[in-house]
Design a protein around this nucleic acid. Structure first.
Lengths: 129, 129
DNA sequence: GCTTGACCTGGAGCGCGCTCCAGGTTGCAC
DNA sequence: GTGCAACCTGGAGCGCGCTCCAGGTCAAGC
């Protein structure tokens, strides 16, 4: 079985060393292997799981909910339904978030357009906001 | 000229009273009118500006950059170019953010799909992640 | 055997963006 | 004129998610 050192894992997952330790500490990573020296040894499974965590985190899932998800995963296959529910709720929130971002982006683009119209044609007399 | 009380402004903009005061304090709101009592009186312009701030904030612009933008607005029409540049850079970041969210959302949906395949057909023997 | 660097642990500290608090004033309703 | 709610100010505190630190261990190279 292939093992990865903490620094290699950090590099592969995009998490910092401290964050990897932190995630283990708070229960997002369960029972990370140790070398006889006590040094962490991450597996491909760990890397994969960290990828999932990264994805959830970067879509705005709060840590406490990721912990809940991790817990469900640890509890076994009978929690599939709950896991699906959790992810689908999150998915819905992500959709809302994206929709909101789009709307706000449109607002910003409009503002830029308006600025261009005011700014370009002539040093017009009107005030600016 | 129409004036709005702090609480009415909070209601209209979605910002809390404390946030309105905070934004004024750090220079995101400039020279808010006062009643003789010292109470703030917001104008329609203020409300509009707060809408812009809300939009920028909710698309992830950090406060320090909003301050820069506010400063440019205060400096007058000759800063139009810089304002446009700032907003367009932000717009680009928002686009990236949205694209990233979409990708991650696809990952999550895939995961759900996979869960459904594993969970539904039979209480299969394989482990879960 | 000594250095060097990657790693360990427990716990403190930090940056951001608010949010809350104490102690006081204002102004409307009764 | 007494309540009461809304507001004021300056400054402290907080929640989140890390990030840093001190003091120590381990393993490999010279």
């Amino acid at each position: 079985m292939k093992y990865y050192s903490p620094s290699e894992t950090a590099e592969r997952t995009g998490f910092s060393l401290d964050t990897l330790r932190y995630y283990e500490r708070i229960g997002l990573l369960d029972s990370v292997h140790r070398a006889s020296s006590g040094h962490r040894r991450f597996t491909d499974d760990d890397i994969g799981w960290l990828g999932t965590l990264s994805c959830l985190r970067n879509t705005g899932m709060p840590i406490v909910e990721m912990r809940r998800f991790a817990e469900l995963c640890r509890e076994g296959d009978h929690t599939m339904g709950e896991r699906i529910a959790l992810l689908e709720e999150h998915d819905a929130r992500v959709s809302e978030e994206i929709a909101g971002m789009r709307d706000r982006q449109a607002y910003i683009r409009n503002k830029v357009k308006w600025y261009r119209e005011v700014a370009a044609p002539a040093a017009s007399a009107s005030a600016s906001v």
